[in-house]
């Protein structure tokens, strides 16, 4: 399958501290690729590098012939990449409708997109005028995903979307990601929950010390728990 996003030898920094070192990754169309690794391995930094939110001083991040690392951060979503940050990072003082509007404005989408997104998360339709900071944790995560989907992305970056959620809500998030895969949306998922990774991913990239050590099909990971044990220390 053709790759929609390719990271080649990416060096990324927080200030003067190098976090990613020659980081390689490829994402196929309609694929769910999970990044697994210990805390501080560079998983979140990889997503932020794609979004232009950390300094990339080496390598390329190619999407549809465009090197995203050469774009200003605010131009990356216009290239069809949407980001759901760790901890949701909603604009908590803004209403649900205003948060969605921010997502819609990012790529000039309108009412049709908004209705389609609200059909995916009907509970948000009842909360449109509510301040987003007052939503429950699960509803906040839905809104974070809905806001990202308002971009109509073909690449979706999810950073620990199930963190701190009830099992029913985790199942709902998984369903949504699976549904997006059916529609051809490619997803990079940073996830600590190995069960979530194994049930959702097509491939798993094991991240260690700012590098992608290996990317393997999820069946191989299921068949050989040593993978998870080696890179995450559990399993």
């Amino acid at each position: 399958m053709a790759d929609v996003l390719t990271l080649s030898a990416v060096d990324a920094y927080y200030g003067e501290v190098q976090v990613l070192r020659g980081f390689d990754l490829s994402l196929a169309k309609g694929e769910v690729l999970c990044l697994l690794g210990r805390n501080g391995a560079g998983k979140t930094t990889a997503l932020k590098a794609i979004m232009g939110l950390v300094a990339v001083r080496g390598g390329t991040i190619m999407k549809d012939g465009t090197d995203l690392s050469k774009l200003a951060p605010h131009e990356v979503p216009k290239a069809g990449v949407a980001y759901v940050p760790q901890g949701r990072r909603l604009f908590s003082e803004l209403t649900v409708a205003e948060n969605l509007e921010i997502g819609l404005m990012a790529r000039g989408k309108g009412r049709v997109t908004r209705e389609a997104v609200l059909d995916l998360f009907p509970v948000l339709r009842e909360r449109l005028s509510q301040r987003s900071g007052t939503l429950s944790g699960g509803e906040q995560q839905m809104l974070a995903m809905a806001r990202a989907l308002c971009i109509e992305p073909d690449v979706l970056l999810l950073d620990e979307p199930t963190e701190g959620l009830m099992p029913s809500m985790i199942a709902r998030i998984r369903e949504t990601v699976a549904g997006l895969r059916e529609r051809g949306v490619s997803t990079i998922l940073v996830e600590q929950r190995v069960d979530a990774v194994l049930s959702l991913a097509d491939r798993v990239a094991f991240i260690e010390n700012g590098q992608n050590r290996e990317t393997v099909d999820v069946e191989k990971v299921r068949a050989d728990p040593a993978y998870v044990h080696r890179y995450v220390g559990v399993g």
Binding site: M51, G52, L53, A72, P73, H74, E75, V76, P77, K78, Y83, P85, R89, F91, S92, E93, L94, E98, E101, I102, G103, M105, A106, R107, R147, I151
Partner: peptide, 19 residues
């Protein structure tokens, strides 16, 4: 709306296309 979003969270605002 853009000004308020920038006020509340600069990084996330950038991730949603706000210059």
């Amino acid at each position: 709306l853009v000004m308020r979003a920038t006020q509340y969270d600069r990084e996330t605002a950038q991730a949603f296309g706000i210059p």
